[in-house]
Simulated scan of single mutants.
Amino acid sequence: MRERVLITGASGFIGHHIIEEALKNDLDVYVAVRKKSNIAHLKAYNVQFTNLKYSNQKLLAENIRENKYDYIIHAAGLNNASYRGAYDYVNTTLTINLAKAAVGQVKKLVFISSLAAVGPLKDLNGIITENTEPHPVSNYGRSKLVAELLLQKVPGLVYTILRPATIYGPGGKQLLPLLNKLIGGKETYIGTQPQKLSYIYAKDVALASVKALYGGNFKTYNISDGNFYDRTELQKIVKDILNLHTAKFHLPVTFVKLLASFKEKVSYLGGKNPEPSPDRLKDIIAPNWACSIETAKQELGFYPLYNLDSGLDKTINWYKANNWI
């Protein structure tokens, strides 16, 4: 009999990549989706759908018991919000509700956290490892870190925590504003401070997530493509792929912060979250996100399949095929 996995956040950007990887590994896949979620893109997969009431630990436990999951990959979360309480509730409180409901019922819970939980280094020297003292700079990162710490204290829970670097790939909209500016001839940067950045292609996040089902109990791992890049490399690669010629602009950090604050107020009045919020801007402009994945390689057997060049090529081809650009 095939082992069964529940994937939360399945209708989101990362979710369908994890579904594909789980199916490829012959797992019986259940996906948790909200009632109002658009799941048209998931109906082609051989999966079962379920709804979870994350705020109710008793109902969560009943769902887990009735469906007899062997594993849970918790990829649901809030990436952008206008106030800290929203991050804390979704990324921390609801995660711990699910973890407590899973105790004694599943073999393992894999929690998709974020490199933002440990936070960036303050200068270009050094590299982030699993032993780096966490100092998140954003409310998003703090909410993920608190979830990690509380998860580790849930009695009887077997877990693995993954901290992905900046994720991109097919289905993700994060790159679209940048791509549209480049296509319009504008290569834009915030300030002039040098940066070291880490990225990971969505399918590699999925690869690590499934590998974590079978190893790394009670451990936390940083995951990226294993490289780090200066602040200009992503846009250079995109320009090469699309054969673009652009003019370069450096926007003052103070101006971008003021603009983000203004957009946040306007978005709040309209009931939407700003992109990016002033809070997430702290992560975006930080100097050093270079991270080591040696521990994940050694203990999980995680070897990423894509670097930034190959991942962006796949992503841009997907955008074109789906008329996103």
Rank of each mutant, 00 (worst) to 15 (best):
I7Q: 03
G15D: 06
I18L: 10
E20A: 15
E21S: 12
L23F: 08
N25M: 12
V29A: 07
K43R: 15
N46R: 13
V47L: 03
Q48W: 01
Y54G: 01
Y54M: 14
L59V: 00
R65E: 15
E66N: 14
A75Y: 03
A76N: 08
G77V: 08
A86L: 14
A86P: 01
Y87D: 06
Y87G: 04
D88G: 02
Y89F: 13
V90L: 12
T93P: 00
L94K: 03
L98W: 00
K100A: 09
K108D: 08
V110D: 03
I112K: 01
A117V: 06
L124M: 06
G126S: 13
E133W: 06
P134E: 10
P136S: 10
L145K: 07
L145T: 02
L145S: 05
E148T: 03
L150Y: 00
I161A: 08
I161Q: 04
G172F: 10
N180K: 15
G184M: 07
K203I: 03
K211D: 02
Y221P: 02
Y229Q: 09
D230A: 04
V238K: 02
I241D: 09
I241K: 08
N243S: 14
L244S: 08
T246R: 03
T246Q: 09
H250G: 04
K257M: 14
S261C: 11
E264K: 15
G271Y: 07
S277R: 04
P278L: 11
P278G: 10
A286N: 10
A286R: 04
A290T: 01
A290H: 00
A290I: 02
I293V: 11
T295R: 15
K297W: 07
G311P: 03
G311M: 05
D313M: 12
N317Q: 15
Y319L: 07
W324R: 14
I325S: 07
